[in-house]
Write a protein that binds this DNA or RNA. Structure first.
Lengths: 203, 203
DNA sequence: GTGTAAATTTGCAATGGATGCAAATATGAT
DNA sequence: ATCATATTTGCATCCATTGCAAATTTACAC
């Protein structure tokens, strides 16, 4: 564990962090579309070209902690507690996926402001959904492998898709209504309960 | 409905259709990224600039029938059968959303080839998910209004999100495995059954 | 320290999508 | 034929993204 990082690595981390902070700040200040890569790199004091050796696209910088979040969620499934039911495990997965995560020496959480930004800018919304989708894919895969004998691939996909699909759509409505983070979270829980109980319980 | 369409309208429809056909053909022939707007407009015999007065972006042309599909689905909910259960109604909604639809004088269905294209090109996948998401939003809204007294907004969102989330994720896995359209559809049905029965039924 | 190999950054040119704008065309109605 | 309106087109421009080669920086051996 003795992370002996040389100057080279430290410098890269510092640059990455500067780009992320500059980008998020500018996006919130003047809007996503209205901010150019040139402005971000100027604020981070690197060349425009360098931005693309850290992020593959302008959207990517907003999701800089995406991979760390997914891996944290996968770990929850991998380290499942023997006695726990699948449903309880999945609820823990969703819960953890909202916790703060560390990346680029930055410990961050999905603040309401960042969510707002992602839901508002079309390009970010689309990319975010794509990442969410890939996340679901990986989670379903992990779920199937963690319970190889009890849960087949289709059941795993149905479980993840149903639970997260319900929670995501419901919380989106809640956020759009301008509800508080507590209310949004409560809405998500209720939606997941419905998914767990089954649609048959409605109407 | 005596649609007395003048030359002007007929011409616009013809152009729109030419653009759609040229674009889809070229995308399948040489790939989405590899095809330029210039090539599409050349094939449709209009100027590059004109493309953007028909579609707001290069991705959009692939989803030309999206709005017609959503409206058909909304209509199914609006014309709900009094005696039918919510679950049966939603199953019909999903079923119909796969039917052929007419737009720009073109009657089209979501062919495996087009789905393949959408799932493969990152830009199309993201845009497609964004459209799917917006569709779910509108369906949930319609569901709530159609059953104003029995289904509140959160229940509606949970129902739509759960059912479609499960079906979409499961069928994606199925398609990726190269299964036949019949197998894919069977997988979707099974996933929806799980969503209807509830996650509690797993594991 | 020096020198050298490897990693990074940078500048530059080019491609392609997207948009605003005004001139040129085409269409519909009188 | 003529006028008002709708469409198309050409152009200029902005910006994200990529390839490439030169310049700079860091790591490491001697």
């Amino acid at each position: 564990m003795g992370d002996v990082v040389g100057l080279r690595v430290r410098k890269k981390l510092r640059t990455r962090r500067a780009l992320i902070e500059a980008a998020l700040r500018l996006f919130e200040e003047k809007g996503y579309e209205e901010t150019t890569i040139a402005e971000i790199t100027a604020a981070a004091d690197v060349s425009t070209r360098t931005f693309f050796s850290y992020f593959t696209s302008k959207e990517d910088v907003v999701f800089f902690d995406g991979e760390a979040r997914v891996e944290a969620a996968l770990k929850v499934i991998a380290d499942r507690r023997p006695a726990e039911t699948v449903v309880d495990l999945l609820l823990r997965v969703v819960g953890h996926s909202l916790d703060a995560v560390t990346d680029a020496d930055l410990t961050v959480e999905l603040t309401p402001a960042r969510r707002q930004l992602i839901m508002t800018a079309p390009a970010l919304r689309a990319r975010g959904l794509d990442l969410l989708f890939e996340t679901q894919r990986r989670l379903a895969d992990a779920l199937h492998h963690a319970y190889a004998d009890e849960i087949d691939p289709v059941e795993a996909a149905a479980a993840i898709g149903s639970l997260m699909g319900a929670a995501y759509l419901a919380t989106t409505f809640s956020m759009e209504r301008g509800e508080t983070p507590e209310q949004v979270w409560a809405t998500g829980r209720r939606a997941m309960e419905i998914a767990i109980r089954g649609l048959g319980s409605i109407g």
